[in-house]
């Protein structure tokens, strides 16, 4: 049996969920949201795919091993924490830089944001590792 409605819905929802997860990640700096919930929703996009199709299909759609996502996320988070140390400050001190964007005006970027990106990747990778393993190939 091929669940046609679920498959169609998951194909449509996946890009939306991924976009929404990034929106939540960026919003999380000042308002409710953040890397954790963003990562969960990004994982949901692929979980939905695995339920509608199969695990192998979800792995293909992801095109990267979820464990690599976890490792990358950990590395990103650790390096954001260590950046301040290379500048002679204490661990995890926020380091901020300003960028001037055309149309949008000034944009402030800092290590807390990078740390959150790391959290996003770790959560997404871990949830997908657990889910895809439990669901089996």
């Amino acid at each position: 049996m091929s669940p046609l409605i679920l498959r169609t819905a998951s194909d449509l929802l996946r890009p939306l969920l991924l976009l929404f997860s990034i929106f939540l990640l960026l919003r999380g700096h000042q308002e409710p949201g953040g890397g954790f919930v963003g990562g969960l929703i990004a994982a949901c996009a692929y979980v939905l795919h695995a339920i509608a199709y199969d695990v192998a299909g979800a792995r293909r759609a992801l095109s990267i091993d979820p464990k690599t996502l976890t490792g990358t996320g950990l590395a990103v988070a650790l390096s954001s924490a260590l950046l301040s140390v290379t500048l002679g400050k204490d661990l995890m001190t926020g380091v901020w830089g300003k960028a001037e964007l055309p149309f949008f005006g000034p944009l402030e970027l800092g290590t807390p944001m990078i740390f959150d990106v790391g959290v996003y990747l770790v959560v997404m990778g871990t949830v997908l590792t657990v889910f895809l393993e439990l669901r089996g190939d």
Partner: peptide
């Protein structure tokens, strides 16, 4: 070198990341 105080925490984390990438 105040970083030395937290290095015993950061170092195993870095090693764990390396091991994770070398999982094959």
């Amino acid at each position: 070198m105040r970083f030395l105080t937290v290095l015993p925490i950061a170092l195993p984390m870095a090693t764990a990341i390396v091991c994770l990438f070398l999982r094959e």
